[in-house]
């Protein structure tokens, strides 16, 4: 199914408790990972390949609803036909 994929990450200067907990666990297991940050991948599915207007609408949805600009950044919006 054609989709628009939106990726959202917590802002770089904010504490990401999930990432911190996973990072600590990896370090405890002996891995050389320095830090981990966890974000979200949101897929919007469409019946047909999204039009330019639908992509524009998705960008708006990503900015207004799927992310909160105070605490998060939309890092990518990609179309997968």
């Amino acid at each position: 199914m054609p989709k628009i994929i939106v990726e959202v990450m917590p802002k770089a200067d904010l504490l990401d408790p999930q990432g911190k907990a996973v990072g600590n666990s990896l370090k405890r297991a002996g891995h050389s990972v320095a830090t981990v940050r966890i974000g979200k991948r949101i897929e919007l599915h469409y019946a047909n390949t999204p039009t330019a207007a639908e992509l524009e609408a998705a960008k708006q949805i990503a900015a207004d609803f799927l992310s909160n600009g105070v605490i998060e950044d939309v890092v990518s919006i990609t179309v997968e036909a």
Binding site: L14, L15, P17, K20, A21, N68, V70, I71
Partner: peptide, 17 residues
């Protein structure tokens, strides 16, 4: 209220988790 933009800012996970 903050998500509705009636008040500014945001609320995140407690510092000590």
């Amino acid at each position: 209220l903050v998500e509705s933009h009636l008040l500014p800012g945001g609320l995140i996970r407690n510092e000590h988790q």
